[in-house]
Amino acid sequence: MKRILLSLAALAAVSAAPLAAQAAPWQSINQRQANLEQRIDQGVRSGELTRAEAARLRGEFRSIARLEASYRRSHGLSMRERADLDARFDRLSRQVVAEKHDRQDRDHRRG
């Protein structure tokens, strides 16, 4: 039984490798945080994000940062926790894009 499970696990790892190679290069959590923070700030400066949108996005950002700190305090980041944080950052990144392109802006004179 153990051999079958190990064989299946090895097969799954080998078949998943090409998918990982096609994905965007992995960024550290710190890089992702800096990138998202910069995108939010840029959206506010350009007027693509309203103050309310930016506040909501920053609140979500702080929530993820607190969760990361909690994970690190308890025992360091496991692969599962990294995956969880990555998924949360992916979701926040999509929210930033959506908010920046929802045609609401600070300067209502722009068309």
Rank of each mutant, 00 (worst) to 15 (best):
M1I: 04
M1L: 10
M1N: 08
M1W: 07
K2N: 11
K2V: 04
R3W: 05
L5V: 05
L6K: 14
L6N: 11
S7K: 07
L8C: 11
A10W: 01
A10L: 13
A10F: 03
A12R: 03
A12L: 14
A13I: 08
V14H: 00
S15I: 15
S15W: 11
A17M: 14
P18W: 01
P18F: 06
P18H: 07
P18Q: 06
A20G: 10
A21Q: 12
Q22V: 11
Q22F: 12
A23P: 01
A24T: 10
A24P: 02
W26G: 05
Q27L: 14
S28D: 05
S28H: 05
S28F: 02
I29S: 13
Q31E: 15
R32S: 10
A34R: 10
N35F: 05
N35I: 00
L36P: 00
L36N: 13
E37L: 05
Q38L: 08
Q38C: 00
R39E: 13
R39N: 13
D41Y: 05
V44P: 01
R45T: 13
S46T: 15
S46P: 03
G47T: 07
L49S: 02
R51H: 10
R51A: 13
R51Q: 15
R51L: 09
A52N: 12
E53Q: 15
E53G: 03
E53L: 04
A54C: 10
A55Y: 07
A55Q: 12
R56P: 00
R56F: 08
R56S: 12
R56H: 10
L57R: 03
R58Q: 13
G59N: 12
E60S: 13
F61H: 14
F61T: 01
S63R: 13
S63C: 02
I64E: 02
I64P: 03
R66W: 06
R66H: 12
E68D: 09
S70R: 14
Y71I: 01
R72A: 11
R73Q: 14
S74L: 09
H75C: 02
H75Q: 13
G76D: 06
L77E: 04
S78D: 06
M79Y: 06
R82V: 05
R82W: 00
R82E: 12
A83K: 10
D84K: 10
L85E: 04
L85R: 08
L85Y: 03
D86G: 10
R88M: 07
R88V: 02
R88L: 09
F89H: 09
R91E: 10
L92K: 03
L92P: 00
L92S: 01
Q95E: 14
V97G: 03
A98Y: 04
A98L: 04
A98W: 01
E99D: 11
K100S: 15
K100Y: 00
D102R: 04
Q104G: 00
D105R: 15
D107C: 02
D107Y: 14
H108G: 09
H108L: 15
R109D: 11
R109N: 08
G111I: 08
G111R: 15
